[in-house]
Design a protein around this nucleic acid. Structure first.
Ligand code: FES
Ligand code: FES
Lengths: 144, 144
DNA sequence: ATTAAATCGGACAAAATTGTCCTAGTTTAT
DNA sequence: ATAAACTAGGACAATTTTGTCCGATTTAAT
């Protein structure tokens, strides 16, 4: 579904958001630990999210990553996915033809677009805030 | 969504099915050409489909691949996907946790399982026959 | 100023996936 | 029998994705 990089990016964003809501900035090391991801690889993903204004990075001692309350409320899951995996989720053909194209559809196109529309809808209607909710109450997990 | 191998496998199966309905067995070379896939790589995929009884292979001169009418009607898209990509479509967690697990859900679990259920339902209700329908009439394409 | 704790970014390495090549074996036709 | 047209399968190569390492830079605290 998503690339590993994207999965880490989403998990990291959720963790940063949850901590930012508590008013604490978090370090790369802590993030990687809490979401159970390789440190250096996660660093790359965070850089990308930072460039795309999904998260904010603060350099220097006592630096780290954070997300403003406003952004936590505004940023959609779709934006995180787009920042890392681009739009292949939306444009890709289910059977691997160059691009999904309704004018020259593959044999699963009609069935496929329906599901993708629902996925798209889900991604675009789920905010970072929505995803942090269960966390504090221990209802959801970022690692196991 | 699916691996390249799986995409080729599905396209190949559809092509073989469409030709089998016309009563003609097709060679690897022809398949690769018609679905625009690398020949040798496609051969591996076909071997796997053959081992999983999705398609039948006939060795020797005038050999090739075919699918019985009965199987064209019975084989579901889900079986093809399973034969090549296994069950990670069903068991995988959207955020990459070891396994999707409702008891210890990730933050997108509830939203994710809905979409996956629809995907599953689609895969399990679409037969090879369904997918061959548009082909002959030039309504759908296996290559572009 | 110095040091320590961070991110940044480039180069590199490992692993997985995708793709190629070649030989062996099988079957049909001549 | 021999040749031709196939598939089977192992070994190998290229590419992409995933992951690591290390030096440079930034910032805060001492
Ligand atoms: S053309 Fe294949 S999914 Fe749209
Ligand atoms: S636990 Fe993540 S999708 Fe079910």
């Amino acid at each position: 579904m998503f690339s590993k990089a994207c999965e880490y990016g989403i998990r990291a964003s959720i963790y940063i958001a949850s901590q930012s809501l508590e008013g604490t900035r978090v370090s790369l090391k802590e993030i990687a630990e809490k979401i159970d991801s390789p440190v250096a690889f996660t660093a790359k993903v965070l850089q990308q999210l930072s460039k795309n204004k999904i998260i904010e990075s603060v350099k220097g001692s006592s630096g780290g990553f954070e997300i403003s309350k406003n952004n936590i409320l505004r940023i959609k899951l779709s934006q995180i996915v787009y920042a890392i995996d681009g739009n292949n989720v939306y444009e890709g053909c289910g059977l691997g033809l160059k691009r999904c194209n309704a004018k020259e559809p593959c044999p699963v196109h009609n069935r496929f677009v329906e599901i993708r529309a629902e996925l798209k809808n889900m991604l675009e209607s789920t905010t970072l805030y929505d995803m942090t909710m269960g966390l504090e109450q221990g209802l959801t997990y970022l690692r196991r």
